[in-house]
Design a protein around this nucleic acid. Structure first.
Lengths: 335, 335
DNA sequence: TTGAAAGCGCTAACAA
DNA sequence: TTGTTAGCGCTTTCAA
């Protein structure tokens, strides 16, 4: 591991001061002789010199790093949001420092602090907390954008899916098809804004009807396809044919888990039970019958979040608002 | 955005020198009076001081950052490898700077250079290149581990799936079931080590038989489910019933794309054609019939890569070798 | 057209 | 038990 070339080496070899080299590096050519410029250029290429970003960052107070805090990077929905962010950042000076909270609020706190320690220029976060007051460290010290989830009171912009609207659309379908009982299958709803809004959208449409809405609450799932047993135990009491029933899975892992369960138990969809849900993996049309599902647009969420963050970093006034990105309701044969 | 607290502020307020503060920060308490220690502790907590990592890194020449370069972060297989790495790193001092090459070798080069500019302490790379000579910048300047793919000559350790072995197992299945023609569906094989080894494993077993092996080469796919048209055009000539034929998809996106095609075209599996492949999403048993598939263990690849990288960083002698992580052949009903 | 010098926030050798 | 000082690699003000 040979010694790293520094700005001093270049200065010495070219016979100019490091100030001049620095100017060169920062494209400040006004009043620099063409000859000097060429000589510097030659030596830099010769030695394959690349400026040390840490030193630059320390002095300039610009790290060129953006922190991303996600709940679980192995979730395909999440990794596509991240892709969107990175895609938008690829032609800027910014890199992404990605932290995975692995569904733990404690880790999330640590992650936020670590990012601040690294002097990131901005943070994109998919928050696990219950309230924005849980994020004292963030405060208004650094530009922040929330994705997928948001915490209130809303002190940073948020880019999320149109959960309320699509859930209402789904409710209309339930009505059309004369379902009498809807079973929502979801991890704990209380503190996760998308789930809250999905439930609200559903209930908003079904209030004043005699459709029964039940909840089956699972643990937070980490698997791409949720494990069976836990869910089935709670669910089976509702699959009895006494009322026309549809299951509504609040995320892809659960939806796929349910498909698997029903396949194993030989329960026919939609004859014995209807099945719909969020389709994080875009696989809902591979099975037979195709599953009516809501497909979000995580890449677009990433795009918009990155744009908003860059605006903030560049000091533009940007509104602290909730931006909803359209999802798509794919009607198939499972209702 | 109030001014950041620095080590100097803490020194002033406690009335000791910043050396002492530095010692405190680095847990060097030998010969520090309990009183001083407590006072420092109090002031740090009071001001909520957190050391600037950039400054620390600059001085200590340890960035505590590990770079990860992946081909496409939105691929579920990839994001699970990343998860494995992060999981292993979570109780260390290291953070992950993740770069997405988006299937472009040009971007990959830039990514590597950017990581070096950031003075990362090590790099995990899923290489896109054709040869390790394509990575001059890396050389032996920094600890490197390859994942999923590897480039030769092997100058850095690599952790990959047991592609050859599982492909051979699949070939044995083809033999057992008397298939006469195998169609490999894959993006370009020539420079991607996993694909090369899968093909080799297959051919190794089928040599000296009269089984015909054909290739349908697609463009590199970026979608979780590959698009239909392109593949079908090439494929349809082989689905004619003149020879018992099986399709072997070399990655999950293609496998899912094929399932979709056959569903749309009403082609029966396994009656009209057999279908097997790599299952990056773990969805192959959701469809009917269940698809015989190879499921890799990307998280484990991540674990082992992280371990090997940490070893190198800590200066332990580690062998430059190829490590194969077991995948699982799930035999279902599609052959 | 170029350079000297100070300093970003921290660490560590050496001194006291 | 603690402090002085130099310096990591760069940027930038001010001067020449």
């Amino acid at each position: 591991m040979r010694k790293k070339v520094t700005i001093n080496d270049i200065a010495q070899l070219t016979g100019v001061s490091k100030t001049t080299i620095s100017r060169f590096l920062n494209d400040k050519y006004e009043g620099m002789s063409g000859e000097t410029r060429q000589r510097i250029d030659a030596v830099i290429k010769e030695l394959n010199y690349r400026p040390n970003r840490q030193a630059r960052a320390l002095k300039s107070q610009i790290s060129s790093m953006i922190g991303i805090v996600v709940v679980d990077i192995s979730n395909p929905y999440t990794s596509r949001m991240v892709k969107g962010i990175m895609d938008r950042l690829k032609n800027t000076q910014y890199h992404t420092l990605i932290m995975d909270s692995d569904l733990s609020q404690e880790r999330e706190q640590k992650n936020v602090n670590k990012l601040l320690d690294e002097q990131v220029d901005g943070i994109v976060i998919q928050p696990l907390g219950k309230s924005s007051t849980d994020y004292q460290a963030l405060g208004t010290n650094v530009p922040v954008v929330q994705i997928d989830r948001y915490v209130e009171p809303l002190i940073w912009p948020a880019v999320v899916s149109d959960n309320f609207v699509q859930s209402r659309n789904l409710a209309k379908l339930f009505l059309e098809k004369d379902y009498q009982r809807i079973i929502v299958v979801s991890p704990p709803i209380k503190y996760a804004s998308p789930r809250i809004n999905r439930l609200k959208g559903l209930l908003n449409e079904l209030v004043n009807t005699d459709i029964e809405v039940k909840q089956v609450i699972t643990t937070e799932i980490k698997d791409v396809v949720a494990r069976n047993e836990e869910i089935w135990e709670q669910l089976k009491v509702y699959i009895k044919g006494d009322a026309k029933t549809a299951i509504y899975a609040f995320n892809g892992g659960l939806l796929y888990g349910l498909i698997k369960i029903f396949k194993e138990k030989n329960i026919l969809i939609p004859e014995q039970v209807g099945l719909v849900g969020y389709d994080d993996g875009a696989f809902a049309d591979l099975v037979s019958p195709g599953i009516t599902s809501i497909e979000q647009n995580p890449v677009e969420i990433g795009y918009q979040a990155a744009d908003k963050l860059l605006e903030q970093i560049e000091g533009k006034e940007s509104l602290i608002e909730l931006t909803c990105v359209d999802s798509k309701l794919n009607i198939r044969q499972s209702l």
